[in-house]
Amino acid sequence: MLPNGEIVAQFLQMRIKHDRLIRAHKVFDSMRKMKIDAPWEDQRFSCIFAPTGSGKSTTVKDYIETVIVDYVIAQGLFPANMSRKEIAHKQHIALHVTLAAKATEKSFASDILTAFGDPRASRGTKDSMLGRAYDYMGAKGSQIMFIDEVQHLDHRYEADQKKSSRVFSAENSSVTDMMKVIMIRGRIPIVFLGIDGARNLILGDDQMNMRNLGEIDFSQLRPERPAEQRMFVRYLGSVGILMQKRGLFPKESDLVSGEIPAKVHEVVGGRVGTASNLILAAATIAKEWGADQLLETHLSAAVDEWAIPAKLISYNPFRSGIRQRELRAA
Rank of each mutant, 00 (worst) to 15 (best):
I184M: 09
E252P: 00
D217V: 09
E228R: 07
I202Q: 07
R225N: 13
I195P: 04
G273R: 01
V233D: 02
D196R: 03
G204H: 03
P261Q: 03
S253Y: 09
P226D: 08
P223N: 06
G186R: 04
I188W: 05
Q161Y: 10
M179W: 04
S253Q: 08
G273W: 03
G214M: 12
D206Q: 14
S169V: 14
G194F: 05
I216S: 06
S238G: 15
S173N: 13
K245Y: 07
L201S: 11
S174A: 13
L221V: 09
V175R: 12
I182G: 02
Q244A: 13
E266V: 09
E171Y: 09
I190A: 13
A170G: 11
V272K: 14
I202S: 02
I188G: 00
Y235R: 03
R234H: 10
E215W: 00
G273K: 02
N209I: 05
Q161P: 09
K162W: 02
R211Q: 06
R234F: 01
G197V: 12
N277Q: 15
G194E: 03
A262Y: 02
L278G: 02
M183C: 09
K162A: 11
N172L: 11
G186V: 04
V175C: 14
V233N: 01
R225Q: 10
S253M: 11
R271W: 00
D217N: 07
R271D: 05
K163M: 10
P226E: 12
E171A: 13
M208D: 01
P250W: 02
R199S: 03
D177Q: 14
E259V: 05
F232G: 07
F192R: 10
N209P: 00
G214R: 11
L248A: 03
I184V: 13
R211H: 01
L248W: 07
N200W: 02
E171Q: 14
G197I: 11
L213N: 08
K251D: 13
R187V: 05
L203A: 08
E259G: 01
P223H: 04
E224Y: 12
I216M: 13
D196N: 06
L201Q: 09
P189K: 14
M179Q: 06
G237C: 10
S238M: 14
P189Q: 13
F192S: 06
M178R: 07
G214N: 07
P250L: 03
D205Q: 09
D177C: 09
R246V: 02
V268N: 00
V264H: 05
Q207K: 11
G197R: 12
N200F: 06
K245I: 00
Y235I: 02
M231L: 12
K251N: 14
N212R: 06
F168E: 11
K263M: 15
E224A: 09
V268L: 03
Q229I: 01
G258E: 12
I195C: 03
L242A: 05
S276C: 07
L221A: 02
Q207A: 15
V175P: 10
I241G: 01
V272S: 08
S257C: 05
S173C: 00
N212P: 01
V233H: 02
R246H: 13
N209A: 14
S173W: 04
A170I: 15
I195S: 06
E259P: 01
D206N: 13
F192C: 08
H265I: 06
A198S: 13
G194L: 07
G269D: 06
S238L: 11
L242R: 08
I195K: 00
L213W: 05
I195N: 04
G247H: 06
P189D: 11
G269V: 08
E228T: 05
L248I: 15
